[in-house]
Each structure stands twice: as C-alpha cells, then as structure tokens.
Design a binder for these strands. Structure first.
Lengths: 167, 167
DNA sequence: TGTTGTCTATCTATCGATAGATAGATGCAT
DNA sequence: ATGCATCTATCTATCGATAGATAGACAACA
C-alpha cells in the first residue's frame, strides 16, 4: 500500500470517527493531506469503498490488539477494555464502527457489512474465550456505550467508571 | 404546538435516528410530510434549531417514561431498560441521542448541548435513585451500546441479552 | 386588515464523481 | 543506449445533484 493511500485512510478514519459516514467528504480528506479530491478518487473510486477499507483495517487492527494482549496473559475482557480505552485515549474519539454503526440503516451496503463484521468478530472472540452469549454481548455493549458517553460528556473518566464493573 | 410543527418533528426524529444529524435534510423531512422545505424553515429557522428541539422533546419524553414506570413501582434500572427497549421496538431504531452523540464532536453547539443533557439527566435520575456513579454510568452505557449492537446486527434479541445482566 | 402558513423560485455552497491533461517513472524492443 | 509505450499519480475543470437558507407572492382566516 502506497504512502498516499495510507495517508488517505488515516485522514478518512479520523474524519469518520468524528463525524460519521455521511459527515465526511472527499474534499476534507484531500485537504487534510494536501492533495485534490480527484486524487483521493484515484485511490478509492467511491466513498463506499474508502469507508469500507477504513473499517476493515480498523477491525483487523482492533482484533490484533486484543489477541496480542491475550497472548501476554491478560483475560479477554481486560484485553477488550484496554483496546477500547486505547482507541479513546490515543485518538480521543469514538470507535470507528460505533460512529458508523449508529447510522447503520443508512450506510452503503459494503460499509454496513464491514461494521457488522466488527461486532460479529468481537462477539466471536469473546465466545471462543468461554463467555456465554449474554456476557459477550454485554461486554461489547458496555464498552461501546461507555465510549459514547465519554465522548458526549467529554469526560474520559466515564469510560473507566462505566466499564469497571465488567472485570 | 401546531399540527405541522409536530409532524415536522416526528419526521425529523425518525430521519435523525436513522441517519444522524448530518444525514438528514430539510428536503427529506418536508417530503415525508408533504410540504416544501421552505415551510420547514418557517417552523424551524435552522437545522440546528430543529435538531435541538427534537432532542429536547425526546429527552423529556424519555424521562417521563422512566418516571412513570418508577411511580408504578418498578426499580429504576428496570424502568430505564424498558424505556430503551420500547424505543427500540416501537421505532425500530437507535436512541436519538445515541445516534447524534456518536458524532458529538461534529454537532452544532445547541444540538450538542441537548445531547449532553440527555446523558446528564439520565445519570442524575439513576444517582438520585441511589445508584453509585460507576453503576449509573454502566447502566446508561450498556443500554446505549446494546441498542447499537442490536441495530448493527439487526437482531432485537441482542438488546435483551446484552442488558439482562443489569437487573 | 393583519397574521399565519405555505408556496414558487432562487441563491450560494458543497457534494460525489468524471474527463482529460500532464509530468515523471518504468519497461521493453530495437 | 535510444526511443516508444505504458503505467502511476496527480492536476484542472466540470458535471448534475443536493445541501441549507432566503425573498416575495399568495391564500386562508380572524
């Protein structure tokens, strides 16, 4: 993947996490990295393709982080909590798939499928680690919701306090 | 409040819950109720004012539902869970303030304030009923997140299973 | 007659997307 | 080694559609 392609995806991820799928544009992403919007189209023919690629990369990176922490000996719930917490700290924003999933019904089909994949694989990881279905759903739900609350009220500590009961 | 004003708010609420703040438009709302977009502007001068009014009505209605259930003898967490569940069932969509809050950083200031109010008053109600701060945040977070997961995966039962652990 | 509400018509700005040109790198055949 | 062709990556310019917003005419009604 070329340098520009990666820069486009980075900028797009940040924009989407801030404003959602319908709230980001080729022009903004292009301006962020100092090219023209037509150049973004060269790398990603449509908005749908760009958002889908960003979502897939996000999910893969997310799961990799979880697996890594589990390999280091942490229990699965703590691993999830840390990776969500990192995303909140490092980027200071919503979960990408939470931001897009909130308008799931309005997403282009390919994007919607990637967002679904994020939740499905997350639940799968938790189930394979031995959690019952209810517990797995509760973990994902609480983490996503706590991230949302922390963003809305602009108070990072809400993520900690909202998810403390999980572990 | 006039009949048209109410119809506008109803249509806007539905649109926003489906597509978020930046995903709904005056033209769509107008078409939904069979008027022109300029007529919507007559009742709500700006998009910001319209969304803020819809959010305030939503929050007030939401809290009224909670209070009512508490008055009927239900415990506060069950009351919250039922009201969230009703919103999911009756409207089949995200929580309005969840849908907008996901892009909180991108909202017009007045709208952002109303979304904040929803979370603040929700936490306040839970705290007044005796819940510790951590517990209150966890309840709101889990309910919002479970609604999100149910929407993304298009499976209403995920809301039940994700929030069963709260009560 | 004045108020209320809706209309038509229009404005400016931006959207996603496309066409066509260009400059530079790469590859290959003579 | 030279010269032609292709590929890559960007540009400028533009498309039709749509966004939010506004002005002014018109109708209903008190």
């Amino acid at each position: 993947m070329s340098e520009t392609t990666e820069a486009i995806m980075d900028a797009a991820e940040e924009r989407i996490r801030q404003a959602g799928y319908s709230g980001f544009s080729f022009r903004e992403v292009a301006a962020d990295i100092g090219v023209k919007s037509s150049s973004v189209h060269y790398h990603f023919p449509t908005k749908e393709k760009l958002a889908a690629a960003v979502a897939r990369r996000y999910t893969d990176r997310f799961l990799k982080g979880v697996d890594q922490r589990v390999a280091e000996g942490r229990d699965i719930v703590t691993a999830f909590r840390q990776v969500f917490g990192d995303a909140l700290d490092r980027d200071g924003r919503m979960c990408l798939c939470g931001a897009m999933g909130a308008t799931s019904a309005d997403l282009a089909e390919e994007v919607r499928a990637e967002v679904r994949r994020f939740f499905q694989l997350g639940l799968e990881r938790l189930a394979k680690a031995g959690l019952a279905k209810d517990a797995a759903v509760q973990v994902i739900a609480t983490l996503e919701g706590a991230m949302l609350a922390a963003n809305v009220l602009d108070d990072r500590s809400l993520f900690e306090s909202g998810t403390a009961g999980l572990v």
